[in-house]
């Protein structure tokens, strides 16, 4: 009995210390990540976004292009590197021969384009630096179709304000079904001469780990804006109805829509 009392006292003490520790940890966590704190931090976001968008409005502000000697020998693949979505795997097994890029939404002329169709269009090649939000950078050469020329063919309707890119990969299994990768960019970035839909990397067809058959390059932005495994692009007037409403997979998880800072 005494022994038990002693034991339970000790247990109580240990539990108290443990819960105290857990509480203070949770307390810290609660303070720095709570919705109230985030809403205060977010109060400067419109300022950051406005300044960033204003600075990047001029089309002649080009991302630096590098020489062939600067190409990274190892380019880190990030996010999805081998989508296990059944329809993607089926398309990859056929070398994307039956794959079509769908151009839809607020356009006068919806299109479906095969890889051969895309390769037949005037291309742009650029050797650029890829900057991840995590802090690392790699350089590669990208070849593809300028998004602006594709949109010119599709003829945007006047109400179009953003281009949404829908991808094949599910990066996170979620209950609400919002785990598919997608991105949105505004027409400033969509019209930029270095914004291309790339089908080749370093002179070879785009590898699966880097987004085959087609990925976006939007060179004045951080890596997470550059959607891989692009299946469909849509001109839209608002991204509120997409995913969880913040304009992209990572944007829905707390990252800035305008990125690039």
């Amino acid at each position: 009995m005494r022994r038990n009392a002693k034991l339970s006292r000790r247990e109580t003490l240990i539990k108290l210390i443990a819960s105290g520790g857990a509480l203070s940890l949770a307390g810290c966590d609660f303070d720095s990540r709570s919705p109230g704190v985030l809403s205060i931090l977010d109060s400067v976001e419109p300022l950051t976004r406005t300044v960033q968008r204003a600075l990047l409005a001029p089309r002649e502000a080009l991302a630096r292009e590098y020489g062939p000697q600067d190409i990274s020998s190892y380019f880190k693949p990030n996010g999805s590197t081998a989508p296990d979505d059944a329809d993607y795997q089926a398309a990859a097994a056929k070398g994307f021969a039956d794959w079509r890029l769908e151009v839809a939404g607020l356009v006068e002329n919806p299109m479906q384009l095969s890889l051969a169709d895309l390769r037949a269009l005037p291309a742009r090649s650029q050797i650029t630096r890829h900057d991840c939000v995590e802090g690392w950078s790699c350089i590669a050469q990208w070849t593809g179709v300028p998004l602006s020329s594709l949109l010119a063919k599709a003829r945007l309707k006047p109400q179009a304000r953003y281009i949404a890119l829908f991808c094949a990969d599910t990066l996170e299994e979620t209950l609400d079904g919002n785990g598919k990768y997608y991105e949105t960019i505004d027409l400033i970035d969509a019209a930029h001469p270095q914004t291309i839909l790339a089908y080749a990397m370093n002179g070879a067809p785009l590898p699966i780990e880097h987004g085959a058959p087609l990925r976006l390059r939007v060179e004045r932005q951080l890596g997470y804006k550059m959607a891989k495994y692009v299946m469909r692009i849509e001109a839209i007037d608002s991204f509120e109805a997409l995913g969880r409403g913040s304009g992209g997979f990572w944007e829905d998880r707390g990252y800035e829509w305008y990125a690039g800072i």
Binding site: R33, L38, L41, S43, V44, L47, W250, R253
Partner: peptide, 18 residues
């Protein structure tokens, strides 16, 4: 924050940077 959370860390950083 005290746990790994890059997105929130950036919010804190840019708020106090301004």
């Amino acid at each position: 924050p005290g746990i790994q959370d890059l997105a929130t860390g950036r919010r804190w950083h840019f708020f106090f940077a301004w």
